[in-house]
Computed example of a mutant assay.
Amino acid sequence: MTVTIYDVAREAGVSMATVSRVVNNNPNVKPQTRKKVYEAIERLGYRPNAVARGLASKKTTTVGVVIPDIANAIFAEVARGIEDIANMYHYNIILCNADKRKDKEIRVINTLLEKQVDGLLFMGGAVTDEHVQAFRTSNVPIVLCATKDEKGDMPSVDIDHEAAAFDAVSRLVSEGHKRIAMISGTLQDPANGYARYQGYKRALEHAGIPYREDYVRIGNYKYESGIEATQYFLDLSDRPTAIFSATDEMAIGAIHCIQDAGLSVPEDVSVISVDNSRISSMVRPLLTSVAQPMYDIGAVSMRLLTKLMKKETVENAIVTLPHELIVRKSVSSPNDR
Rank of each mutant, 00 (worst) to 15 (best):
E175N: 07
K151S: 07
G298L: 09
D149V: 00
V78F: 04
N110P: 13
E324N: 14
T247P: 04
Q116D: 11
S174K: 09
S174N: 11
V265G: 05
V169A: 06
I70Y: 02
A9Q: 06
Y91V: 07
N49T: 06
R284D: 09
D69I: 13
N192S: 15
I159T: 09
D84K: 14
E224A: 15
D238R: 15
E150K: 08
V319W: 07
V327S: 15
I82K: 01
T241Y: 01
D260L: 01
N92F: 06
N192V: 04
L144Q: 04
V8Y: 10
V143K: 05
Y194I: 08
G124Q: 04
I272P: 00
G54Y: 04
A168S: 06
A246Q: 08
K35G: 10
M282E: 11
E315K: 09
P155A: 14
S281K: 13
S237D: 13
G253P: 04
C257L: 02
F75T: 12
R136C: 08
S301D: 03
A76K: 05
V29K: 09
A79Y: 01
V216F: 02
I183L: 13
L112M: 10
V51H: 14
A98F: 03
I142R: 03
S281I: 12
R10F: 03
G45L: 15
V271Y: 03
V290K: 05
A98P: 04
Y232R: 14
Y223P: 08
I67K: 02
R34V: 09
L287P: 04
D69G: 08
F166C: 01
M302A: 01
S237Y: 08
E83R: 13
M154E: 00
S270L: 07
G219S: 11
A163L: 15
I252C: 13
A164G: 07
V300C: 05
A40K: 00
R217I: 10
D336G: 02
D248I: 08
I218H: 10
T247I: 10
L304F: 10
K178D: 14
V117T: 03
R34F: 12
V274M: 05
V108K: 03
V173A: 05
T306W: 09
V269E: 01
R328V: 07
A9I: 05
V140A: 06
